[in-house]
Nucleic acid binder design. Structure first.
Length: 409
DNA sequence: AATCCACAGGAAGATTAGGATA
DNA sequence: TATCCTAATCTTCCTGTGGATT
């Protein structure tokens, strides 16, 4: 047993010549230098300086698409601020991801706990938690910066927290609070209470997406540390950057792509990461994405997709909405489901198209009407097996194509 | 040029699900 | 726990349309 495992891992370990420090490529890592974000960093820093003088900084809203460095910049500036604060003028930065901590109660509890208050997971009235937090805050003179990442997630279900937090200063004697909201939805303030909107959006910072060149520099900076020297083919980074720039300048994706390319190269026992690995990695990411999307599809959409797969297997050419609908209507009783109307199926197909699982075009056959022709943009066998993992669809597993052809009236 | 197929897709109302609130 | 509210889902009804056929 021991010799086997030693051999097994020794083998794999011997190949560890690609990565020097893989974690640097993970999205959770906050680098000490953020290229092409100097402007935003300075901006945010100058908004927050008053904190060091004991004054209240403006509240800030930070906007930008995913992977534009919002969180990294905010955390970085926050860290610097804490380090720069003096003994007699304490600055505290509290970071909260609202996607994880997503209710008024949890946020207040989280904040209170940060000041070593004991708050039970559940049970207390919300205003008691609020009072506890406020008291803890006011115990000593300090400026507290609360960073709310993904605030838009919070707004969807009531903006009471934001309202309460933006007003907390008037309840405080010694301390001051300022809020930094981070959102990837540019229009989310539209759903805010106007009072909250004006107090939260005293200042705004926009994070534009990176272009290919900027992503390249970011990748290079990290790759220098993350990879062993010479283990990257020259064209690898530009290629990753180009792919990511196509996908709306998301640096996180670019880093994922680079990391997965490296992992694939490692697994393939290659000592160098090549373009081939990058392309493989891109395909793998895409495949994982599709798999994830399909798994979380509502049952009706899965049935529609299944119908299309069956039609394709059956060799039907020019799959139209009606063909899909007929097939779908036959499948529904097999899984004991009510069937939806034609109109709705049209919408579901449009949604699948949006998700990039299907490809549809409207074609006109003149006298013989107008239809939407549907083609799968993913390999159907793979799709089928993913769909069959759904227990609600298990009765379809044995549905054979010829039988369907016979039923198709 | 007029016709007309077979469906796309908009509008609006109905239903449902989930979540808050009393 | 009942009830109320809202957003999402779904239906009904409808108008619009590209181009082969007449």
């Amino acid at each position: 047993m021991v010799p086997i495992s030693r051999g097994l891992f020794a083998d794999l370990l011997a190949q560890g010549e690609i990565f020097q420090s893989r974690d640097i490529l993970r999205p959770t890592y906050t680098p000490s230098k953020l290229p092409h974000r100097e402007e935003q960093i300075n901006n945010l820093a100058s908004i927050l300086v008053p904190a060091l003088r004991g004054e209240t900084p403006s509240n800030v809203l930070i906007y930008g698409k995913t992977g534009t460095g919002k969180t990294a910049v905010a955390k970085y500036v926050g860290k610097e601020l804490e380090e720069a604060s003096f003994e007699d003028m304490k600055c505290v930065v509290i970071y909260i991801n609202c996607e994880v901590v997503d209710t008024q109660y949890r946020i207040l509890a989280h904040l209170a706990r940060h000041f070593d208050r004991d708050i039970p997971m559940t049970g207390w009235p919300t205003d008691q938690v609020y009072a506890e937090f406020r008291n803890a805050l006011d115990e000593e003179k300090q400026v507290v910066v609360i960073m709310l990442d993904e605030v838009d997630k919070l707004v969807r279900k009531g903006d009471d927290v934001l309202y309460n937090l933006s007003r907390v200063n008037s309840d405080l004697l010694r301390s001051r609070v300022s809020i930094i909201g981070i959102s990837n939805d540019l229009k989310f303030t539209e759903f805010l209470d106007p009072r909250v909107k004006s107090s939260l959006g005293e200042d705004e910072i926009i994070f534009p997406p990176y272009d290919a060149e900027q992503i390249r520099e970011i990748l290079e900076q990290r790759a220098n540390v993350a990879f062993c020297s010479g283990s990257l083919q020259e064209s690898v980074i530009p290629l990753c950057a180009a792919f990511a720039a196509q996908e709306h300048g998301d640096a996180r994706r670019a880093l994922d792509l680079l990391r997965i390319s490296g992992e694939l190269a490692e697994r393939a026992r290659s000592t160098v990461v090549t373009e081939v690995h990058v392309r493989q990695a891109r395909d793998k990411i895409e495949q994982d994405r599709v798999e994830e999307v399909i798994k979380t599809l509502p049952t009706q959409s899965k049935l529609v997709l299944y119908s299309i797969i069956l039609l394709e297997e059956q060799g039907t050419r020019n799959i139209t909405t009606s063909a899909v609908y007929n097939m779908y209507k036959q499948l529904c009783p097999l899984v004991e489901t009510d069937f939806l109307t034609h109109r709705r199926i049209t919408d579901l197909i449009a949604e699948l198209d949006m998700l990039g699982i299907l490809h549809t075009i409207v074609i006109s056959k003149g006298r013989y009407g107008r239809t939407k022709e549907i083609t799968l943009s993913v390999y159907s066998g793979k799709l089928k097996s993913i769909l069959q993992q759904d227990y609600r669809l298990k009765d379809l597993t044995n549905v054979t194509v010829p039988q369907q052809a016979r039923l198709g009236l």
